[in-house]
Design a protein around this nucleic acid. Structure first.
Lengths: 117, 117
DNA sequence: CCATGGGTTCAGGAGTTGTTGAACAATAGG
DNA sequence: CCTATTGTTCAACAACTCCTGAACCCATGG
């Protein structure tokens, strides 16, 4: 398992891949949370999807260049490549995270939409 | 053909749908061009895809709330819903258009990255 | 040694996407 | 009327997406 995981370089990060990766609500939730926590293990996102599925989504984010995955013993620690994304597509990550938090309620887990007009 | 085309209201615009719509390079090129020209007919994008295909992509953009389609005689005039997008997801459209132009070279067809500061 | 917690890999399935060609519809001009 | 321009609808297709269960690997700790 000590295989090196593939990550695109900063220059290789492709806009289509990033938008595709972030068009999925589950992946966007993961990203939004990493924004606050900095780094987390895969297992911390068990609320969003099954273990198998999480591997899939994590790979999707990693291959798009959105996250970096570091191997730490038996765990995979995931973090945001915020600086790389900001350098390549300024303002993009922030706009998407803000939009995600606005839609999901930002801190409330349920949908407590205050019924906007 | 004088059917009314469906457009989501500003509040109905969904982030997943927008990102999904803009994850396609063809649709992003259309959007990037509308950014400069304001309003154009479907046929003006014939360089990007076939007629049939253009109908598909235009519908995708429209249904996501990214563009508005106005019927003008035999033509369909497409324009960006920039204000609606900006109100809903501030900075998003600008970041994506900028990234698109950086990748496509904005005027050069090939990849001649002049390494702007 | 065996078990456990943390992740992966594989095969498969239901659904979606991007694309095409053929046929059609609607508006406008001779 | 006939024709051209502009765009739609439909059926089909290969490829991909998201998700699942079963099996597996790998590091640690009794």
């Amino acid at each position: 398992m000590a295989k090196e995981l593939h990550h695109p370089t900063r220059e290789q990060i492709d806009l289509s891949a990033v938008l595709d990766a972030l068009s999925d609500p589950i992946r966007r939730q993961i990203v939004a949370r990493l924004r606050h926590t900095g780094e987390e293990a895969c297992s911390c996102f068990g609320e969003f999807a099954s273990k198998t599925n999480l591997t899939y989504h994590a790979a999707r984010l990693r291959e798009a260049g959105v996250t970096r995955t570091r191997i730490d013993g038996p765990r995979r620690m995931i973090s945001l490549r915020a600086a790389d994304l900001e350098a390549r597509f300024p303002g993009l990550l922030e706009a998407i995270v803000a939009g995600t938090e606005a839609e999901t309620g930002r801190s409330a887990p349920a949908q407590a939409e205050p019924a906007e007009a």
